[in-house]
Write a protein that binds this DNA or RNA. Structure first.
Lengths: 193, 193
DNA sequence: TGTGTGTTACCGAACGTTCGGTTATGCTGT
DNA sequence: ACAGCATAACCGAACGTTCGGTAACACACA
């Protein structure tokens, strides 16, 4: 080992995450990233030899892990289903800054090219759906319906994040989180597709 | 008068819209715009002296008008409410390329600055909610509930657009449009917020 | 009818700035 | 002494923007 880094990995990834989620991939310039992390551009290339693409991958990977640990993990643990969903809601609220922050999957899916990042986004989104559907199925709801509810819930989360960001008011997102337990696990069912 | 333009206003705005909605404001470079519209960068400044900002404003204005004419206008016209909503769904499907295109309000609301464009986005989004709530109220649903349903519907549209884009499959968006009439006008009501 | 003048639409070339990325030179803690 | 890491300086390319110039057309006057 040698000199202790003046910028910790946590600070670095947090700054990166913040820039990418607010500006998207193309809008996240190295200058902005440098200002947000406190590391000069050249130093960033020491930490991420793969450059901007590697930074984005690292950010997405960490977000995946955070979501799995704090939101989807507790969802499959013990305890009453409704309260488990409430734990997830709390985690999501923190993750999205109570509705004031954007979703990386939204920000990264803008821009036309077929990059490895796009494939990562796709995989993360599908994993999220699958994990959510699994716990819904677990409380006795048929697989088809479970998958449909999982998709709807995620769409509603993404949608209210966009809506809240556009109008500058996070309350639609917060209402979504509040209603999430019933939307996922409630007895009510909708017309068939 | 003088020479008739070789690139019509329609072609120009269509190309601009396409670039902005796929890349967002920051990702929409003048080179990309130039390629998409067939006009050289310098020529774009002849049509839009205000530069990129004016282009974005024009695109958003045209989208507003299109939406009002083809989607929200018919919604307040005569005819059975359900079929009016179905007309709107058709229009939205066309507007969003059956779910393969992104929403400008999503693309433009990325990026941190407080620009005039952001204010325009906010106004457009709120006008959309208000117009939708109005027609729901018209069929006898209380104002509060109408507003809530309008918000939910738009969130679901935005959300499935993000979802469909992320996973590269437009079917979630298409299902949303199919279920829109019942979601907006159905008798079912949810738990209170 | 033909010519000159003004206007409009477009483009090539360049502006200063910022982009993502690289190289060389240290300072730091062990 | 030395390995690890941050930094200043720099690179070619692309950024949004500006400017001068050139066609193509409309209209006034001869």
């Amino acid at each position: 080992m040698a000199r202790i880094s003046e910028v910790t990995d946590t600070q670095l990834l947090d700054g990166l995450t913040d820039v990418f989620r607010t500006h998207g991939y193309e809008g996240a310039s190295l200058t902005r990233i440098s200002e947000a992390t406190g590391l000069k551009r050249a130093s960033l290339y020491h930490r991420f030899p793969g450059g901007k693409a590697e930074m984005a991958e690292a950010v997405l990977k960490q977000a995946d892990e955070w979501l799995m640990t704090h939101a989807l993990g507790p969802l499959q643990g013990p305890g009453e289903p409704h309260s488990r969903v409430r734990v997830m809601s709390k985690a999501l609220s923190k993750f999205y800054g109570a509705g004031h922050r954007s979703c990386l999957l939204d920000a990264f899916s803008l821009g036309g090219e077929d990059t490895a990042l796009r494939e990562h986004v796709r995989a993360s989104m599908m994993a999220w759906i699958a994990a959510l559907a699994e716990v819904i199925r677990e409380v006795g709801i048929p697989a088809r319906e479970a998958r449909r509810r999982a998709q709807d819930a995620i769409a509603r989360i993404q949608g209210t994040l966009v809506l809240s960001r556009a109008i500058g008011d996070a309350s639609p997102f917060q209402r979504t989180l509040r209603e999430l337990p019933d939307e996922l696990l409630g007895a009510r069912d909708r017309d068939d597709s």
